[in-house]
């Protein structure tokens, strides 16, 4: 009796425990991610570092405030994004914060969300928090947005009429043809995908998934995707940040 109870509760823990996609990678893909010279994501980290040091239209660069290599940035704080933006009274992603900073403090023209430059900067900044544990707040004024993200995650859409949850909650670790379904964690983002051979932002990845469901999809940076990123990132609270990760 006790053994059964223990077993049941253990499997329950197994179900809710976050798991990095790293766990389902092949040996070669893991080696690729772990080797800074083999991992193509580090080229984007370097590009991001260049942008970080480059002066904006008013002569300042990110580095002017945050240190030449971002050493003034707090890794623990990076791991808490998406956060609640008190001023705007809504959640803001790490990339959203970078966009705001670039516009307001450097006087730059707006960058494209998930565009090359923004992704490079986000990859560089999040890489500074590599190894730090994801720590997204889900209570207080941000709670309604987490709920919206969860509702999106669980809503059927598209001609395939599936929700994110169908694959990434109910069939985790199961094979869809040759591919193993992951838990849909975001701790490795922006992440190098072997499938398209580039570093992808979370919102671009959402769009790719929705396209497979033959669903309409939004623009990167849309409120729906910010909420979805918020919820999905919070599902991975406690996982170590792996940016730039290598995934399929």
């Amino acid at each position: 009796m006790l053994a059964t109870t223990a077993l049941v509760s253990l499997s329950w823990v197994h179900a809710i425990e976050p798991k990095s996609g790293y766990q389902w990678l092949s040996e070669e893909a893991r080696e690729m991610q772990d080797d800074e010279f083999a991992n193509p994501g580090y080229l984007v980290v370097d590009t991001g570092r260049d942008y970080f040091k480059k002066a904006g239209d008013n002569g300042k660069s990110c580095a002017s405030c945050h240190g030449n290599d971002g050493e003034e940035l707090n890794a623990k704080s990076i791991a808490m994004f998406p956060k609640f933006d008190e001023q705007a009274q809504r959640p803001i992603t790490l990339q959203g914060r970078i966009h705001a900073c670039s516009r307001e403090h450097l006087g730059n023209a707006p960058m494209k969300y998930d565009g090359k430059k923004a992704i490079a900067l986000e990859t560089f900044v999040r890489n500074l928090a590599k190894g730090e544990r994801v720590n997204v707040n889900t209570v207080g004024p941000i709670a309604p947005f987490v709920r919206k993200g969860k509702a999106y995650f669980e809503t059927r859409r598209g001609q395939m009429d599936m929700a994110c949850a169908h694959c990434h909650v109910y069939y985790v670790g199961v094979r869809l043809r040759a591919q193993i379904l992951s838990k849909g964690q975001l701790n490795g983002f922006p992440t190098f995908r072997l499938a398209n051979q580039r570093v992808n932002g979370t919102h671009s990845r959402f769009r790719q998934c929705e396209n497979l469901l033959r669903s309409r999809y939004g623009k990167a940076g849309a409120d729906e995707y910010v909420n979805l990123e918020l919820y999905m990132m919070s599902r991975g609270n406690g996982l170590k940040i792996e940016t730039p990760a290598v995934r399929y």
């Binding site: 809503t155 598209g158 001609q159 009429d161 599936m162 109910y170 069939y171 396209n211 033959r214």
Partner: peptide, 23 residues
């Protein structure tokens, strides 16, 4: 179920990409 309905009335589908709408 996760299994798509391969001949479901397209009226019941939400947010379908334009190319596949009504099909």
């Amino acid at each position: 179920t996760i299994m798509p309905g391969y001949y479901r009335n397209p009226k019941y589908l939400k947010n379908v990409k334009k190319k596949f709408r009504g099909k």
